[in-house]
């Protein structure tokens, strides 16, 4: 079985995000970029499927700027077999919308014919939570989002999903798209020897135009602003004062 894992290069989750003064977006110049944390979980799950003998090949795919190569090298160092970069943007500030990403991924999937796609539930930059579902729609495949447990058996997968009320388990026909949630696994760190080995693994490069996909955005960004800042209040000395303050505000 072949598993395809789309991985996105995003601002590192520890970086303090700054909105550009002209309101045009978020400043990404000279900030640390990393693999989207959910995608690390997806890569980890794919590698575990390979280690368990369920999968025989893991292919990582990224769509974006040239530097997304680094993200793909990370996936390769974790254990992916090969990688495909689709260059679709000249600048990190030019993000590709989930619909366009899904269209490109569909074209890649038509060529690669994987049985399973493991994507992140959301990218922590734009928080759209959309790409996997859109891809699944374009392919006419089944989808299982927000997975906290995945079991592949022959022609189906049983997936436990984190939903508002608790957990839901569904059985999906393969091929399927599964988007992964935080508690599916704990991703490994790449070891130094594996980082070295990853440099020799195949990394193909294409462009969005190679697949004939129009990546021009449907959503025009009118402006990007800082949210209203919340002021720090006061430190109260003891529980009695806290109770008195809350009573004063009428909330208890």
């Amino acid at each position: 079985m072949k598993v395809l894992v789309p991985v996105k290069r995003v601002i590192d989750y520890n970086v303090k995000v700054r909105v550009k003064a002209d309101g045009s977006g978020v400043d990404l110049a000279n900030v640390k970029m990393s693999m989207n944390p959910f995608d690390e979980i997806a890569v980890e799950e794919a590698i575990r499927l390979k280690e368990a003998g369920t999968a025989d090949e893991v292919v990582a795919v990224s769509i974006g700027v040239k530097q997304a190569q680094e993200t793909l090298r990370t996936a390769l160092a974790m254990g992916a077999d090969r990688a495909i970069l689709i260059v679709a943007a000249a600048d990190a500030h030019q993000d590709i919308e989930p619909l366009a990403v899904a269209k490109i991924l569909k074209a890649v999937i038509d060529e690669e014919q994987p049985n399973l796609v493991l994507a992140g539930k959301q990218a922590i930059d734009n928080d759209m939570n959309a790409t996997g579902q859109m891809l699944s729609a374009l392919l006419g495949w089944s989808q299982a989002t927000f997975a906290s447990k995945l079991e592949v058996n022959g022609d189906n997968a049983v997936v436990t999903r984190e939903v508002d009320g608790g957990l839901q388990t569904i059985k999906v026909k393969l091929p399927a798209i599964v988007t992964v949630d935080l508690r599916l696994n704990q991703p490994r760190y790449a070891s130094l020897p594996n980082i070295m080995k990853a440099k020799k693994k195949p990394l193909g490069e294409k462009t969005a135009a190679d697949y004939g996909v129009d990546v021009s955005p449907r959503l025009e960004v009118v402006k990007t602003a800082e949210p209203e800042a919340r002021q720090a209040g006061e430190i109260v000395p003891d529980v009695d004062t806290l109770v008195a303050k809350l009573k004063e505000r009428g909330v208890v």
Partner: peptide, 16 residues
């Protein structure tokens, strides 16, 4: 809509 964990609020206009 909030982006980047609510660190920025983006205004988008849809052409769809």
């Amino acid at each position: 809509r909030p982006i980047y964990a609510g660190n920025a609020i983006q205004t988008v206009r849809s052409k769809d």
